[in-house]
Design a protein around this nucleic acid. Sequence first.
DNA 1: AAAAAAG
Length: 681
Amino acid sequence: MSHVVVDSSHRLDQQFAALDLNPADVQGGGTGRRYIPPHLRNKEASKNGECAGRDGLIRAFNSPGWDGGRSNGFVNGYHDNRMNGDRNSFGRGLPRNDRGGRGGFRGNRGGSFTQPLHNGGWNAVATRDVYTSFGGRSDRGKSAFFNDRGAGTRPRFECGGFSTAGNTRWVEESRDEEDWSKPLSPNERLELELFSGSNTGINFEKYDDIPVEATGSNSPPHIESFHDVDMGEIIMGNITLSRYTRPTPVQKYAIPIIKAQRDLMACAQTGSGKTAAFLLPVLSQIYTEGPGEALQAAKASAQDNGKYGRRKQYPLSLVLAPTRELALQIYDEARKFAYRSRVRPCVVYGGADIGQQIRDLERGCHLLVATPGRLVDMMERGKIGLDYCKYLVLDEADRMLDMGFEPQIRRIVEQDTMPQKGIRHTMMFSATFPKEIQVHRPCIWYSICIYVPSPDASPLFAGKDSLTLVFVETKKGADALEDFLYREGYACTSIHGDRSQRDREEALHQFRSGRCPIMVATAVAARGLDISNVKHVINFDLPSDIEEYVHRIGRTGRVGNLGLATSFYNDKNNNITKDLLDILVESKQEVPSWLESLAYEHQHKSSSRGRSKRFSGGFGARDYRQMPGGGSNFGNRGTRSMGVHGGNRGFGFGSFGNDGYSGNYGGSYGGTYTQVDWWGN
DNA sequence: AAAAAAG
């Protein structure tokens, strides 16, 4: 298999090989590649196929390393770990309030914690009291490196925390003997903060009939209940607090695989429960195993007076994510499952004050969630050592292994002190994986057909409970469209990489909370973000590759809900036509006849005139000079609706065709109904 | 012809 991989020109395979995730003899596979921008990757990608949009693939690998897929399991699933912000009313004309330089960046980011709490102190006495009630030794010293949550600069982290007693300088020996598997005392306030968000309320039983195919002789059996595998008291307690009643399909398979210390690759969309699918077993393992040598290392580092390496932290687990907001989201989940444990989760990402992040790290870090660039920075500053990092998770792995990230991932995984495969366990999650990664096995699709009598029955107005996410291809385009919508009186916001981190997080909060039920976004919001109540994804610009498309529409129609994806198609979108058609056909959705013929035409043209592809295909963004302020009016600039539902709806929210439609929802259980409009010139 | 991720 390995040589097949080398011979393959597929970039991800090569990167998997280079990342030491494949057998050793393919190490050289990563050289000599050249960057292929997404809009030119299309052909190759579609040739290879993806596990696109279908939950499904889980592969367990024999540790050490990837074994070429001898033992596979397939699964899919979902889960609702959405956060729930406060819901404010929405109305046209609401001013944006995420612009401008308001202070308090730290205090209100993310939006899931409404109450900045001020706890400058250590709260040692109270802490001891509750400890005794929990059966622990009331007088034990706590490792300052690992437990201390007090006296911080980030209010939201304090909240009473575990506030484990002690002063960082008076570290006693006893904590070496601490049993990490035993829960610490409860903390009412923290508990409220962590678990008061709305939870699923989803009826998982409904999905028990989903057929799941598991293949491979060595895969551990899947579980049907969280009790089927011993994850320990802490995890079980936090599962209860999170009101998870039963594992989602992806959790059923992934949890035992990870618990069995096997490497894993899982194809699952956000909203399928994948975050918990890796956090639960990884944390459970850490609770069981304790800190091991990492404890001594951190201690030694704390006593070291050198400029570098001082108070260096040695996380036991690392989760890498491609966007800052996603890292935050994962971190928020991790805090839940680390409740009452000695594990201290941390998050580091760019665009935020590094000093603050360093200080947070220095209070102890056992599970680190990070974006790659900032992590490398932290490593180079000697603040993070990966020497004892036994669990590596790549979330949205297809993006993490993309060319843009590859050097940083390589730097982190290969060129530092991270344990070799076999000692280190690697888990990769993504909604899409190139076919070749699936090792000659088709990704299993799960299909649920849901008949929607009439869209009018559940009008998709953009409002606090039905958010609309609008994707564009460029940052400039995002600004322009947002400005337009704003001037039209819509309560909207926008997120893209050129906005300040504070603005990004604020925008996300405004959107999540429903205060701005319309968000214009670039690719930064396409992956992994778990936002409840996104009822409608609009591809104002179609992306140029189908993987991106799949990730985008995955923002809606999750967790048992129905979603709608509307895409505006124009003649600049030739490069995605074929893949879009395939995906619609595969998911048994109605295909506009014009799309079919365009796909045929394009294919015909491409094969007969190879070179012309380069000019006919290509970047799908609109010409934003045509945007309001630059000329024409959105509402009636010739949106021609062809196919699916008929009618001209311009660019408005809340008005849809009224013909009933049924769809097949291969992508997620809730399903996304797709409609494609032609937007001609 | 782009986005993202370090500053």
